[in-house]
Design a binder for these strands. Structure first.
Lengths: 235, 235
DNA sequence: TTTTTAATTGTCAAAATTACATTTATTTTT
DNA sequence: AAAAATAAATGTAATTTTGACAATTAAAAA
């Protein structure tokens, strides 16, 4: 069959902005780049798209290689395609952002690769335009989480309302009212109270909740204005 | 400098889903494909990314070529990258959706290329995965317009509230209450009433409004739930 | 037993939303 | 010239949602 002759072919990469939450802070997973140039410098997790895979598959593959994890929340963020963004050779990158439960995959990560979790407010200089990707991913996370219940992806299966609230407060860098927060969250009817308490973090202990997976899937699209003035977080 | 050897390079295209509104219906701009294979079949407006341009520039270029228009609302939708999506040769496409004032560019379009506006609910079979792109763009348009004042991009500089309401009703395929609609829209303080009436569409005539560009730009990020139950329109 | 710490829960006022009908301006008809 | 027809403009009351705010409770530590 005819080919599209005289058209320029370009390298395509998938890069992942991987967010985690350790109970206190939002974290970003970075690796030390293996390839020259800039080998040893910190970079997002990424790789070139292979002949037989889609971009989503490439992102999943790269993510799985690093974390051992398969069912990750993964969402296409946007393309980065400035002709000179990679000084070596033109490469268009498609950025994905991922949300994972940091505790679940801690061990696998650190042993296999030169990977490390960094505080999202203080991480090393990144190669190329990866800094820009992170900024865009942060903005998208804030925007999306203001309307959709995606932050659960960052928590373990069992979590408490105070933990959930801390996560929101960390993502938006705001303080929220406990009473209004729990009313709002519970009114979404996505959570089930367990008859077990988390006694680690307080004397009284806080009730554990878990996601009702059925309702979560069914209501995943639900739009709830969990955050006041979501305007600010537009992306 | 070292190159990334042994990696597969891929063709990259930008395809545009171009929406227009003729006062009654949402329209989609399609062209007859010039290249083989499938020459003569209907397709989205698109083209290959050139060596010295970014994807956004490619989309703008393609759009400008067809419509003569430069300051178009253009937003990256997502990538389409199934390895076999283009039977000729592997091509990753980045889809953009565009909103234009249909009347402004009617003439330029039809003369230069084999381009035509189609009713969004009834348009011909498209090549490759372009149908899927259109569906995704529709969903995105609905989602986005439920929160952000982007539908103005589809109207002429002067428009009436009944016209604007018709547009919303067409996009969401719902009927809205006149009183609540105008209250909601006007409360965004983006519109300025002109002292001129549109006498074309009714005996009494409806006041023309225009966007206050300053406020529009400043409040572009504003989140307003113009549509009840925006949940449904998640994308 | 008292103190300390953090979790849980309720109420009231204000704002936003929804549902709903009448009046007004102008043209068309008689 | 008056009456009828058409579509635009406008207001209000009931309900729901939001935002602000403080007292009580459970358990461990002193």
């Amino acid at each position: 069959m005819t080919k599209y002759n005289h058209q320029t072919k370009i390298l395509i990469a998938a890069d992942c902005i991987i967010f985690g939450f350790d109970g206190r802070q939002l974290k970003l997973l970075l690796v030390q780049r293996a390839l020259e140039p800039e080998a040893g410098k910190w970079s997002l997790v990424g790789g070139f798209v292979q002949p037989e895979e889609s971009l989503g598959q490439a992102a999943s593959r790269v993510l799985h290689k690093l974390t051992g994890l398969s069912d990750v929340y993964l969402e296409e963020l946007s393309t980065f395609s400035e002709p000179t963004r990679d000084p070596v050779e033109r490469t268009v990158s498609v950025a994905y952002f991922a949300l994972i439960d940091i505790n679940k995959y801690k061990q696998q990560i650190t042993t296999d690769y030169h990977a490390e979790w960094f505080d999202l407010n203080k991480f090393p200089k990144l190669i190329f335009d990866h800094q820009e990707m992170v900024e865009k991913a942060k903005a998208r996370l804030r925007y999306k989480a203001a309307f959709h219940p995606i932050l659960f992806e960052l928590l373990p299966a069992k979590f408490t309302l105070p933990q959930l609230q801390s996560l929101y407060e960390e993502v938006y860098n705001i303080e929220m009212d406990k009473r209004n927060f729990s009313r709002k969250i519970l009114s979404m009817h996505l959570l089930e109270k367990l008859d077990e308490k988390d006694k680690e973090n307080s004397k009284k202990g806080a009730w554990f909740y878990k996601l009702n997976k059925k309702k979560y899937k069914a209501n995943f699209h639900s739009v709830a204005t969990i955050i006041p003035n979501p305007d600010i977080y537009y992306s």
